[in-house]
Nucleic acid binder design. Structure first.
Lengths: 207, 207, 207, 207
DNA sequence: TATGAATGAGCATTCATTCAT
DNA sequence: CATGAATGAATGCTCATTCAT
């Protein structure tokens, strides 16, 4: 995908600058008005140079996705040790806050990126999403190992699917909402509640 | 939006054929490759004819959104009387099944449409989304009036936001998933559970 | 050019309505926005009907030119008897006023038509202009025969070319001027003066 | 108007080539058949390139008008010193010849351009025309200052309007005439006569 | 390596013209 | 005869991509 291996510092700088420019353009102009010339402009290079680092526009989008995914994976690795020590409500709140922060940083670059649903343009883009899912499952597994009572939950995969996907989707939806009817704290509280209640419920049945 | 009032049968047919073709093209080619020529082709008309019924491409998208929204609103109206009589778990399961059916009909036309998140391209498109939200709130309100014990829920708005948005988003996400880790029944069951548990929890606190 | 001979009253009505509509559309929308559909609309017929009377758009323009030219020729025939009796200044003033009137009638239909320079679209259109020239020469000849002293003018053709074309062009130019620096009366006076002086000068030399 | 500043030699060449091509296409095909693709073809570039230098077709026309106006203004500046020294007839003849030459150069490019009356399509185009009018008035004023006896002319504005507009319009008309009834020399002579006679007349009255 | 001018296929849209009704 | 829906070639314009410098 990346045409030229960043063998030199300058090249590395350019590749990053282009990816950065991609996010900026997407946030400022939307996907429909994001052109390679625009990206190159923001990156401070010429369109010709862009094509020395990326085979085509698609490749830039893929690199952006890669960047986004890597950033999420790093976040999850970072929070893991702390998260594992927390109880469910505190952990959920903690995770959701960190995730929200990440979506809002750099003028909401990632939030806007998420809303553009880039994967609708190329199915291959969404393959990366599975990596995040895997990592989340890992984290849950580690969490469960630190909180063995959770092993009594009937269906951990279902829990994962519901709570994790649900939380992520709702947060993105919420932050994109022009006039949300509840506050962010209410939302995060609610999601925490939901996790706690769900787990409690699922375990009662298995006592 | 619609340029020529369908004064003749043929015209009405064309308008519908164009909207249909729009959904088909979106599903098959994605939004990036959906051109007016393509839509006209699928509709079996010439590009010129398309413009006799719609002022521009945007107007076709708006008509599609309108169609989609109207279909959802009809579904909700249809479902309301039956739904109101059910208990929470049954009601949730019932609604989710009906919603899933709608997303999958016509080769998943609406599912693919939902994933394209057309509203990210033009905010005006998402105005219609509010209509659905309103209708859902109405339904919840009617449900609560038939099940007065639910009035003890602490925060109905939060419940709405979490459960309704969450369920819709998760279902769309699930149906778009190439290799989901759980079955649809598990998912719907889980969502039902979640609603039940959440409500139970929120009410315990207020006893 | 005209496809169907107006064998019936209704047909005649339609042909005239179309020509009329052509002038109206040209005046209101300019040539760039004058479409056959527009003309048909104004004429109160369908585009299909327009093509029963005219082979194509071009033919409508030709008929309009014909109409315009005929109207000018009629005007000239009308004014001839009166004009011939007048002295030069009075005659010039008289003619220019009648010509101005004609350009301004029907909301300046002919003025706007003249400004559109239709002949730039098709050279054949300007052939008609020669008919007017011829008629003008005839009138001048008749005038000269009633005012034999004018035979002493050195070059009647040059006089014709200068005074007649000049007056026509200047009047059209003047009436199209958004902010003319002189009044119409000053202009017509000036043109009268010019004719008188020119003739006086040309005759002095030949005494 | 011009999108890309000609930062390189090649660019400057292209801008000029496009303007040139515009005149050529207008002369050869008329305004109705002058398309951006056609202009680009004549200029030896692709349509895409045309749009790197001009924002749209309109901008090309504006640049052409600018070019035309600048050329006329240069001509007038060039001619001024010599013109001022001449008597009226010689000056008129001199100016008319120079103007005729300009209209006929480059295969009558400007003549054909003038006939197309581009300004009828967009009033903004004719703003430039006022520049020429102003310059002409300046010249007349300078001329009058060198020939103080002309101050006795009753109405210099009327004179300007008649003689200047008239001469320009008649010359353009004449040169566009397929079968003129007099020769160019006769015409220019006549216009000279007319100016001389008119002035003489206007001054007699004010002695 | 970087540049940026040039490319040209492709898109949204228009409109003169036709023809089934 | 009249209709007006349908046509489709043509237009102005964009933008991902290339390549001479």
């Amino acid at each position: 995908m990346i045409r030229r291996k960043p063998s030199q510092k300058r090249a590395k700088v350019s590749v990053d600058a282009i990816i950065d420019a991609g996010f900026i353009s997407l946030a400022e102009n939307g996907i429909a008005n994001t052109t390679t010339i625009h990206i190159a402009d923001i990156a401070g290079i010429s369109p010709g140079t862009l094509y020395q680092y990326f085979a085509n526009k698609e490749a830039v989008y893929l690199a952006m996705e890669r960047h986004f995914v890597d950033d999420i994976l790093s976040l999850l690795d970072d929070v893991l040790p702390e998260f594992i020590q927390m109880d469910i409500r505190a952990g959920a709140t903690f995770l959701l806050h960190r995730f929200t922060e990440m979506l809002l940083k750099d003028n909401g670059r990632y939030l806007k990126y998420s809303r553009q649903s880039l994967h609708t343009f190329d199915a291959s883009l969404s393959q990366h999403a599975h990596e995040i899912e895997k990592k989340l499952q890992e984290i849950i597994m580690q969490y469960v190992m630190h909180h063995p009572e959770l092993m009594r939950i009937k269906s951990i995969p279902t829990f994962n699917y519901l709570i994790l996907n649900g939380s992520i989707l709702i947060i993105v939806r919420y932050l994109s909402d022009f006039s949300p009817t509840i506050s962010l704290e209410q939302l995060i509280d609610g999601l925490g509640n939901m996790a706690v209640r769900y787990i409690a419920g699922e375990m009662q049945d298995t006592v």
